[in-house]
Simulated scan of single mutants.
Amino acid sequence: MSVPVTLTTSPKQKPAADSLGFGKFFTDHMFVLDYSSAKGWHDGRIIPYEPISLDPASKVFHYGQAIFEGLKAYITVDGEALLFRPDRNFARLNHSAERLCIPAIDEQQALEALKQLVEVDRAWIPAEAGTSLYIRPFIIATEADLGVDESTEYKFIIIMSPSGSYYAEGINPVKIMVEKKYVRAVVGGTGEAKTSGNYASSLISSKEAHEQGYSQTLWLDGKENKYVEEVGSMNIFFKINGTVVTPELTGSILPGITRDSMIQVLKHKNIPIEERHIAIDEVIDAHTNGTLEEVFGTGTAAVISPVGRLLWEGEELVINNEEIGDVSQLLYDTLTGIQSGKINDDFNWTIRLT
């Protein structure tokens, strides 16, 4: 599939690598695809990055039909561009779309469009260690109608942002607050879909965590307020007495692509890994008896974030002397090595753009 390209006549000044941060700068171009019930998905094009003009009655503003994804492109040491598991992102986008009554996209055509977009803005992929080109595909409902039902019109858009480390702390261990007051999701809800509303409802807890000096919130299940689920932008892992444990996917947890990648790496390295229910009391008990060896989060933006402190009911638990654990370091080195092309991709996860 060849996508029509309109190149910008006013290229932006590219930011310095040490000023990137996360999601602050955007490349020169974007991909746009329209949907109507009469024509289906149509008129895909790559155009200069620009504001979106929407009717004030567009359903996305009123009923929240909005989903998104996050993935990355990297530059290898020999100058090739790599995409990391983009097929899984478009498959998950369609899973979210089904939950929110949004028409599915053609995953292969979306991948081809993404490849072309990355090629057009290839010069925006930063090459410095720890940097990448963050890619944000999203779909919004655009029909101007206040009836409470699914939209008949949508836009699928891909924008890209050269990014540095997600956290100001970098790869250093972060501080996480365990949430007990608010609830993020329940089984049967939208917890396993990557929809904007999930993040909106989590902001109040994140705000309170930040006010107390913590990076993010660790959510418990919405029914019993007992079992660990996930962190705001990450899935969570615990290394207890030599075994890595992560909450199983029950329908209220986002099935992270980085999570899945880490599980496969752990199995490949013959490190014991369990996907199961894990109560916060089990974590506290493991810390008390000295068997809680590591805690880390995984996600596209941060890749891996070791956790150095957990706040639970006013008590702060220090994890591994606030140092990066051996397993956390191994997983980070392995995944970033594959993503940057520095080590062999035994899993066939990367797509090279030549």
Rank of each mutant, 00 (worst) to 15 (best):
Y35K: 00
N348S: 13
G188Q: 04
V77N: 11
G188H: 07
A73S: 11
W124H: 07
G232Y: 03
A302D: 04
T217G: 01
N348F: 05
D149L: 04
K24D: 05
Q329K: 15
A286H: 05
L292Y: 05
G189L: 07
N198W: 11
E208Y: 08
D149T: 13
I253F: 03
L254Q: 08
N320F: 12
E211D: 14
F61M: 03
F347C: 00
A301W: 11
Y214T: 02
I324D: 05
L100E: 00
G21N: 09
S132C: 08
T195D: 06
G197K: 06
S58L: 05
E119T: 13
V120K: 02
F347G: 00
P86Y: 09
E294I: 11
K226T: 15
T9Y: 01
T300M: 06
S2D: 12
I159C: 09
E274R: 09
Y154Q: 04
V174G: 06
K181E: 11
E294W: 10
S340V: 04
V283M: 06
D260T: 12
L111T: 01
G242K: 11
N321L: 00
A127N: 14
G164K: 07
M1G: 15
E229C: 03
V3N: 03
N344G: 06
I280A: 02
S151C: 03
D221M: 01
M30L: 12
F31K: 04
A17D: 15
F84H: 08
E69T: 08
N94Y: 06
N344E: 15
A129L: 07
K24W: 00
I273A: 11
I105E: 04
V283K: 02
T298F: 02
I343P: 06
K155I: 03
I47N: 00
Q108F: 03
E128R: 12
V60T: 15
I159V: 15
E107G: 04
H268F: 13
E80T: 09
T288A: 14
Y154L: 10
K267V: 02
T354D: 15
V178H: 02
F238E: 08
I240P: 06
H210Q: 09
G40V: 10
W124C: 02
E153D: 12
L317P: 08
L133M: 13
S163D: 10
A200H: 08
Y199D: 13
G325C: 08
I52S: 06
M1L: 11
